[in-house]
């Protein structure tokens, strides 16, 4: 009787490749957040005006209009500094998750969908925006997973 032995072959990235992959993902996240933060600050009145049209956050619109771009800048700074990039990636995932929940809740309950995002991203529909955010969350989670397996 023949015996079949299955060899498990696992594809392993070298430590250097992992490091550069994580770093590249960080750079992409930095680009996204600084791009979005700048457009929100440059056209701040419009961003605040858009937020003030959302019933749930109307009273806090003026604060949120500053907190969001400042949080994006802070997270980008954490991602730039090698010692804090893991914290930056976690914060990036957290903030993107908040944005995604906000968009989904708007899609589900809002009668009117104002777009107060910035720059080229504004051209995306709200559904496309959800997929866009989910893709960024996925790559950031992948980078976090890689960074954990990197240290073990």
């Amino acid at each position: 009787m023949e015996s079949l032995t299955v060899k498990k072959t696992s594809y392993r990235l070298s430590e250097k490749a992992k490091e550069w992959l994580i770093f590249s993902i960080c750079l992409i996240c930095i680009f996204l957040f600084l791009y979005a933060a700048y457009s929100k600050i440059a056209d701040h009145r419009r961003f605040e005006n858009g937020l003030s049209k959302v019933a749930l956050i109307r009273s806090l619109a003026s604060y949120i209009a500053w907190i969001v771009p400042l949080a994006e800048i802070l997270i980008s700074t954490l991602l730039i500094i090698p010692r804090t990039y893991k914290l930056g990636l976690s914060a990036f995932v957290g903030l993107m998750a908040v944005f995604t929940v906000y968009i989904i809740s708007m899609l589900l309950w809002a009668t009117k969908l104002p777009c107060h995002c910035g720059g080229v991203i504004e051209k995306l529909s709200w559904i496309q925006h959800v997929w866009f955010n989910l893709a960024f969350i996925a790559i950031a989670v992948f980078a976090l997973w890689l960074s954990r397996s990197n240290t073990n």
């Binding site: 979005a36 700048y38 720059g119 080229v120």
Partner: peptide, 17 residues
């Protein structure tokens, strides 16, 4: 990281609607 940040801000300024 700083170069990418500068590029993002420059690109955002260029495409700001």
């Amino acid at each position: 990281g700083l170069i990418v940040g500068a590029l993002a801000i420059g690109f955002s300024a260029f495409t700001n609607i």
